[in-house]
Each structure stands twice: as structure tokens, then as C-alpha cells.
Design a binder for these strands. Structure first.
Lengths: 203, 203, 203, 203
DNA sequence: GATGAATGAGTCTTCATTCAT
DNA sequence: AATGAATGAAGACTCATTCAT
């Protein structure tokens, strides 16, 4: 069994990560034992440990990978030309998250909740998540600026705060859909549209 | 030896719960050992177990209690007469959560994240959270109706979806403020206000 | 099972240490598993760990205890009044070590060899042994001075070097008796006596 | 593909043994993993195992080799003509051991201590060491006889016991210099000389 | 009623050894 | 012959829970 090719190595890592993902999701981060992951990966303990040196590392990899996946999923939506309205964009984002999470063992929402919780005591993980959300919010802020420029939104609004609100809507959708289970992707978009409808009184 | 009085019993339960809360919050649900809680409560193992029969039960109690606390904190805001505008109300809610969480060892946001994560594998906990959020959302829906009635919001909007969006904003605020740490209570309100500002184009 | 008395605690510690001692001696430090010790101590894993927090600590305790025991065994011999001749004293020391080591499971010589080996990679243990041997050598040096004073040995000899040689004889006896197994306590004394016999030629 | 030449084989064995030696010495026998040795030898796992079938075997070889080396180092000293006095000879032996041990990764003293410890549970190793020490002591005994013959020592002394004492001095020097670290080669010789100085009183 | 010492199943991780390529 | 990835048994240690006193 001589030196393994880089692809094979990557494939093995993916195989292990996949096993970890599906266990984590089903049972939570801490209720999942390394043995569960080892069995799910169909490898031996030693093999798993030769790819990921600890459970901690595996958790980190699982969460950051899901973050990267999310990034790839949502990136195109944020870059669409011409930019759809805020409500439409929110609808597309929540829709994409939902659609992606249908795939067995790949529920981004569940991993997100587990990751947030873990981030409270894992500094490295917290930093990884923090920079991901900050970067994502930055992209939202750009979109807000473009809306301002194209007069979909008023000109002199606080772009950053709007981005924070939009991100809050998305994250809040994730929580609700995982906990109450009765939120459809379009609900948030619909709600937002209603909130923004012009009426006589100012707020 | 007469039985311990009911007040005493309740006081003990509170004392244990308080200890559990502060441990959970500092170290997370699973990294907290019963021994940590026992030591923090300044009682013996046997005593703690006579009030809460298992760690699971203690987690459930801790999360549920925090939910009740949240309810008592936010209830008055939702009942205010006359009802402030949506943005103002969101600002008050996020503000109340933040203010409450300043108190050492009582960060509602951290407990919330921990609870969501745990709810994935603890059916009982999930149901408790679910019914709390549904009830809270119901109250938001009532508010939405009143806004419709008072023409702060248009008449024929989907009240439920608006409530979902408002709840999403609040939950998303909690996540962001716990993970990125750079969200002030008013940011969300400000962002929402901007999103709702009338411009020429419709969405 | 309320608070245990101090004596009981000490007894438990001794019970565990005894079990460790006999395992270590039979199988060596590293070939002995905690499970071996746990079984030999007739306690549970948790109980053993509540008295000694790690195997390392148990090794340290076993070795330092044997050092203390050795100290108590040899102290009286070094203090004898009037001081016997060097050869007689060496004979008594090697004799005491041998006699003590007859007791099943308490072979000081075996523990000594194990300890020396372990001291190479355990700083704490090395320091403990070092200070023990230094202090023991100091006592030997005092004896040498008294021999000088009482003209059993010449007056202006290097006391410290003589002490080093005497210690070397004792330690070398321990090694030989453990490895070759054919050294009686008196052999060393006899050999030393012969080496010191006056002959015509100087050395 | 022709078989590998015998020289090459021997060179490989030496290369592996050297790697093992330096690892053992630095980290101890049990803390050294086969992987450490494999990496230090710059060969593959398979290669190492094709030369030495087990770690046990490697330990045995490492210790035995060091014994052989010691033999070659000390042989000439014991054979010197004319034989120097006992104290001078002890000084030369301890000096040679010290000088040899200066070389990085070849500290005979450390290996000796490790070997003694291991010999307690490895019968094969114990026998190898035993026969080495017995043979070495035999050579010392010959020297003692020659000293008797040449009247450096008295005629009718117990040669064997004197040899045991001399060996004890050497072994004890090794232990002290490894543990206390404050023993120079000449100290033992000096001490022995003092012990043997004639005084009025007999012992 | 209370105490806290004891239990022991279960966790993560290591590492000597093998064998498919 | 050589390689090094894979194996899996075994080890140290933890911690929720119990129950003798």
C-alpha cells in the first residue's frame, strides 16, 4: 500500500467528514462518539485519526465545511444582475437553504444551530464563524448599497444596519424552521414585503 | 423530623437551577458536569439529585425557566398601550434582552443558543421551545393585527408571515450578538426602519 | 456514606499504593495498566482516581514512598553510636535492604531500578530522587567525618568523595543483586575490607 | 533483482539500531514509539520490521549492542600491562564511560538504567545482561588476582567479593552520575583511595 | 433527610504490527 | 524488496448516578 494519491486522500477526508456530518446532525455534537463516526465512515479508528487528529478538529472541519458550502450556495444569489428586490432576495436565500437541506444528512440548519452552540466554548470555531458571518454581512451590505443606488431603497440609509437586519432575518429563519418547523422559505419574504409596504403614517 | 417546608423546597430548587444556569452558560451544556453544578450550588450530590432526578431534567428546567423569564421580560412590551411602531417595538425587545443579559451569569442569548442545539436531540426540550416560540409569535401576530387596525401597517397583509419575520429578526439578533458580538439593540430597529421607508419603486 | 475519617482516607491511599507497588514490581511501570492496579486494589476505577489523579502521580507516590521507607530503614544504621567501621556499616546497610526486600511485593531493589529509569523522563521524579540521594550522601559524609575524627580513617581525606564511593557501593550492590542475583549483603563489605587492607605498596 | 548484499544488510541494521538508540535514550524505552524509530531511521515501517521483527527485539538489540560497546571500551583497560592500581583502574573505567557518553545520543549511562529496568520483565534481556556482568566481573576478578600476585593487594583475600565491590563501585557511579549528576569520574577513584589508606586501627 | 464516597460503563486516543500495491 | 496506509485491541481517564451510613 504505497503512497496514496492526493485525490484519494481528499476522498477519504470527505468520506470521514460526511460520516461525521451525518452523525453530528442526527445526534448532536457531543452525543456523537468517535466510535459512531468511525463506524459510519467504514474505516478503522486509526485511519480516521490519521486524517483528523481529534474529535475537536473533526467538529471544526464539519462546521467550517458547512460554512463554505453555504457560502458557495448563497454567493451567486448575492451577485445576481440585476439585483432583485430585498424581499425576493431573502426569499431566494431562504429557499436555497431549505432546498439544500432536503438532502439526507446535510441539513445546514441543524449544523448551524449545533455550531453556534459549540462556538460558545471553542474559540477557534467562534472565530471561524465570526469571520464567515462578517464576510457574508459585508456582501449583504454591498447589496444594500446597490439598492440605494438604484433607488429600490432610500439613498441615505444606514447600510450596515440594514445588512444586520437582513442577516438577522436569515438566521432567524434558520432557527424558526429548525425549532418550530412551520416556516416556509417564502414566509419571511412575504412578511418583509408587508412590513415595507407604504402606509400613511410614518413609523 | 418534620418535612421540609414548601418554600424551602422551592428555594432549594431555585438555588440549584441558578447554579446550573451559570455553569451551563459559562461552559456549555455538555462540558458542564454534575459535579460542577453540585459544587456551584453548595449542596451535596444527593441533595441535588433529590430535587432534579437527572442532568437531562436539569437542562430542561434551566432552558424552560429561561424561556419563562424571557416571557415575563417581553410580555409587557407586547402589551404596551398604545402600541409603538414595529421598529420601536423591535428595538425595545432587543434592548430588553441585552439589558437582562448584562447580569453576570444570566446571558439569555447564550442559553438560547445552547437550548436550540440541545433541542435537536431532546424531544421534550424541543416541544417546550416550540410551544414557547409559537405562543410568543402568536402575541406578535396580535400586535401585527393591531397595527393593521390602526393603519400603521396596511390592512390586508398576511399577519402570520409578518409575525414570523419579526420573530426572525429577534432570533437573528440573538445569534448575531452572540457570534459576531457587534450588534447593538438599536441596529436591528434602525435597519428595519430603513427597509420600510417608502421609495418610488415597489418591490 | 458520609465524610470519611482521615485515617480511613489514609488507609485507602495505602491500600491503593500497595496494590500499585506490587503490580509495578511484578510487571514494571509501563507494562502495569491502571486496570491492573484497580483490580489489585479491589476498588473501582473512580475510587482509585479520586485518591490519585493519574498514573504518573501513582508512580511518583510509589517511588517516593519507597524512598521514604528506605530512609527510615537506613537512618538508624547511620546514627549508630559508636559508629561501626565502614565495612561493617556497608554490610548492615546492604543487609537491611536485602532483609526488607524479602517481604512479598516490597522489593526495594526492583522499585529502585524502575524509579531510576523513569526518572530519566519524569522531571519531578528525578528531582525527588536527586534530593533523596543527596541527603543520604550527606549523612554518609557525616559518618566519614566521624571516622576521620576517631582515626578509623585518615584525617585529611576528601570526605565528599569517600561518601560518593560508599553510596556507589550501595547502589552498585542493588543493581548487581537485582541483575546477577548472586550477591549476598556481606560480599560487598568483605570486598571493601579486602580492598582496604594495608599492604606494602601504596596505590 | 538480486538480493541485497550482506554489507548493505548490516549497514541497514546499524542504521536502524542507531535510530533506536538515540530515541530510547532521549525518551525512554516505552515512551519511544516504533514510529519515532522509523522516522529517525529514515526508512519505512516495512523496512524496519523486515530487519527487526518487533519492538522487543529492537530493545534487546539496542541494549545488547550497548553492552558489547561497553565491553570493547573497557576490555583494553582491564588488560593493561602492567596493571595499574585498583583506584587508578576504577578512575580509568569511570573516565572512559563518561568520555564515551559525551557523544550526542550515545549516553551509555542512560541506556544502562533503562536496560536494568526493562530486564525486570524481559527474561531474555535479563539473561543477556546477567551474562555480560558476570563475564565483566570475571575479568575484574582476574585483575584482583593479579593484584594479589603482585602484592598490590594482600594474598589471601576473597577475589570474587573484591570483584563484586569493584563492579558495585562502577555501577554505582553510573547511577549517581545519571541521577544526582554531580559525580566526576575521578571522585570514585579518589574516594576509594582514601578508604584504603592505612591507619592505625584495623576495621 | 442528607451526605459524599464509590461505582463502572463509556470516552477519546494511541501505537505495534500487517499487507495490498 | 519496499512502501506506508490501514488495522483494532488496549489504555488512561471521566462522570452521571447510587446508596451505605
Amino acid at each position: 500500500m504505497p503512497k496514496i494519491s492526493d485525490e484519494k486522500r481528499a476522498a477519504r477526508r470527505a468520506q470521514i467528514l460526511d460520516a461525521a456530518w451525518s452523525c453530528f446532525q442526527r445526534q448532536g455534537l457531543h452525543a456523537t462518539t468517535m466510535d459512531d463516526i468511525i463506524r459510519a465512515s467504514e474505516l478503522s479508528a486509526g485511519a480516521v485519526y490519521s486524517y483528523y487528529p481529534s474529535k475537536e478538529e473533526l467538529i471544526l472541519a464539519a462546521v467550517t465545511t458547512s460554512l463554505t458550502g453555504l457560502s458557495e450556495l448563497l454567493g451567486p444569489i448575492l451577485q445576481t444582475e440585476p439585483l432583485p428586490s430585498p424581499a425576493v432576495m431573502i426569499g431566494r436565500i431562504t429557499g436555497a437553504i431549505t432546498a439544500f437541506s432536503q438532502r439526507e444528512g446535510h441539513d445546514l440548519r441543524r449544523i448551524a444551530l449545533l455550531g453556534w452552540s459549540e462556538a460558545q466554548r471553542n474559540e477557534q470555531l467562534r472565530l471561524a464563524m465570526r469571520s464567515f458571518y462578517l464576510s457574508f454581512r459585508k456582501q449583504l451590505e454591498d447589496a444594500v448599497k446597490r439598492w440605494s443606488d438604484s433607488e429600490v431603497l432610500p439613498a441615505n440609509i444606514p447600510h450596515k444596519d440594514v445588512a444586520k437586519s437582513l442577516l438577522a432575518l436569515i438566521l432567524g429563519f434558520v432557527v424558526q424552521s429548525a425549532i418550530t418547523g412551520d416556516v416556509e422559505p417564502d414566509d419571511i419574504a412575504t412578511g418583509l414585503r408587508a412590513l415595507a409596504m407604504p402606509v400613511l403614517q410614518g413609523w
